[in-house]
Design a protein around this nucleic acid. Structure first.
Ligand SMILES: NC(=O)c1ccc[n+]([C@@H]2O[C@H](COP(=O)([O-])OP(=O)(O)OC[C@H]3O[C@@H](n4cnc5c(N)ncnc54)[C@H](O)[C@@H]3O)[C@@H](O)[C@H]2O)c1
Ligand SMILES: NC(=O)c1ccc[n+]([C@@H]2O[C@H](COP(=O)([O-])OP(=O)(O)OC[C@H]3O[C@@H](n4cnc5c(N)ncnc54)[C@H](O)[C@@H]3O)[C@@H](O)[C@H]2O)c1
Lengths: 219, 219
DNA sequence: GGATGATTGTGAAAAACTTAACGACTATCT
DNA sequence: AGATAGTCGTTAAGTTTTTCACAATCATCC
């Protein structure tokens, strides 16, 4: 439909789901209007950044008024494709994978884990959090064409092998929780979430970037 | 010791643990030297960025040669404070919290979850993954002074309350996995890892930022 | 021992992102 | 109706991060 939606900066795109969630919250609370300043305090993003982000989509608000919550919500729902369900597969039903299966991503996010895959015979055939666990041998047959993205929670030694199979099966995005930096063709998108690194980075910041003790009162 | 280490860009700091891990791998494999190009292919970061990142710490390499793995490793170990253990607490032993407790963050990351906390009577007094689970009422007493950072995996409704107590207990960093955007004093650092948002953002990118189908052969 | 090829460290440019500031406009109150 | 306080969208400035490109240097081979 709209081919040239390409002008939205990546940094903005990453914040859209966050905005969407809070607009949803406001709507549930029956709020009619909201200002960038209010939103800013809730999501901890500078209000100028929020206005700038919104402005990439045109004039969503009214000067002197703010944004209409109802309108904003329906706009973001459309923009984030929340009217159609995105089907996802999860590979590796271990500690982390099981936790994700128990979580309902549909709550505020029209994404559904349709199938899980593992090698462990004890798990195959069961349902966890309503998601059927299949044998990894059936990956290609089940995924083929039907599944948009995959969540990867296998041991890192298996990561590249499974990735290659996912790519062959037509998945176009992978959310990789393993420490392995996987290699994919150019047309496949991979987001890495590396929990060890996140923890280590936090610790590094604590030791090397001491924050100012605030003498003023925080509002 | 070195007060003015402040010149390292945040983007660089976030990559340091990643470099550290791969240098560790190389060292285990018995590799003696490595070039920024090689490292680049492994960690999927542009080689110029790697050289720039390293250069903030002085001249770690040799022109025409590359980097000595042994030296690099010992340098990063020092820089990332890997010689001392950083103590961490985990709050909320549910799906996600339990998965983390079963994971050994110490493997390549000198960070240890010392205590876990929950309200659930069945869990209190047990050990999960070698970590004792304590009652949340004892949070202040146990954490006080001893714990540097906290991992927050409670329901989002409890997030702000627990955060306030963590801050009072002297924690200086929080890794927040709840969808709540928590408020803290200026001297406390919070990193948010919001899994729903990561998934939703991936899906958004897939639909709106189609990647080039590569006609060239990938190396 | 000189030629060759590899690789760093960095100055300079480019790109990406954030923030400040303000004119234009709105709602609301008296 | 006019004054007031609030708010957006955007221009411009500032900041951070990435990338290019190359002189300087080193290892190695013949
Ligand atoms: N658990 C954590 O807190 C944590 C933290 C950081 C990183 N990680 C990473 O996340 C990944 C998963 O961690 P985990 O703790 O859940 O591990 P885990 O061992 O509990 O789970 C791995 C699962 O993958 C399955 N598996 C193994 N090989 C497979 C294959 N070829 N195909 C399909 N399934 C296969 C196993 O049967 C197992 O159920 C690992 O790469 C780990 O490094 C986990
Ligand atoms: N599980 C997932 O895959 C997933 C995905 C995205 C986000 N999250 C978020 O992570 C958080 C944890 O998710 P979960 O699935 O593990 O939830 P969960 O309900 O399984 O676990 C929450 C745990 O916190 C404990 N708890 C509740 N109130 C507490 C309090 N005041 N003090 C201490 N402990 C308390 C509960 O007893 C429970 O054990 C939630 O905020 C959730 O939104 C989880």
């Amino acid at each position: 439909m709209d081919i040239e939606q390409h002008k939205i900066p990546q940094a903005t795109a990453k914040r859209l789901p966050l905005y969407y969630r809070f607009i949803n919250n406001l709507h549930s609370q029956g709020k009619q209007r909201v200002s960038s300043k209010e939103l800013s305090e809730a999501v901890k993003v500078d209000s100028a950044t929020i206005r700038r982000d919104f402005s990439y989509f045109g004039a969503l608000g009214k000067k002197g008024y703010g944004y209409n919550v109802e309108y904003l919500l329906s706009f973001f729902r459309k923009t984030l494709d929340q009217d159609e369900i995105t089907k996802v597969a999860l590979i590796g039903v271990g500690n982390l994978g099981t936790a994700f299966l128990h979580y309902n991503f549909m709550k505020n996010n029209n994404t559904k884990i349709e199938y899980a895959f593992d090698t462990n015979a004890e798990k195959i055939g069961t349902e966890i959090g309503g998601v059927p666990v299949k044998h990894i041998d059936d990956l290609e047959d089940i995924v083929k064409g039907d599944i948009t993205a995959a969540i990867l929670t296998v041991p890192s030694s298996a990561a590249q092998g499974i990735t290659d199979r996912l790519v062959k099966s037509g998945v176009s995005g992978i959310l990789n929780f393993t420490p392995a930096r996987i290699t994919v063709p150019d047309h496949i998108r991979v987001h890495h979430i590396d929990l060890s690194i996140e923890l280590q980075a936090l610790v590094y910041f604590l030791k090397h970037y001491p924050l100012e003790e605030n003498t003023e009162q925080e509002e």
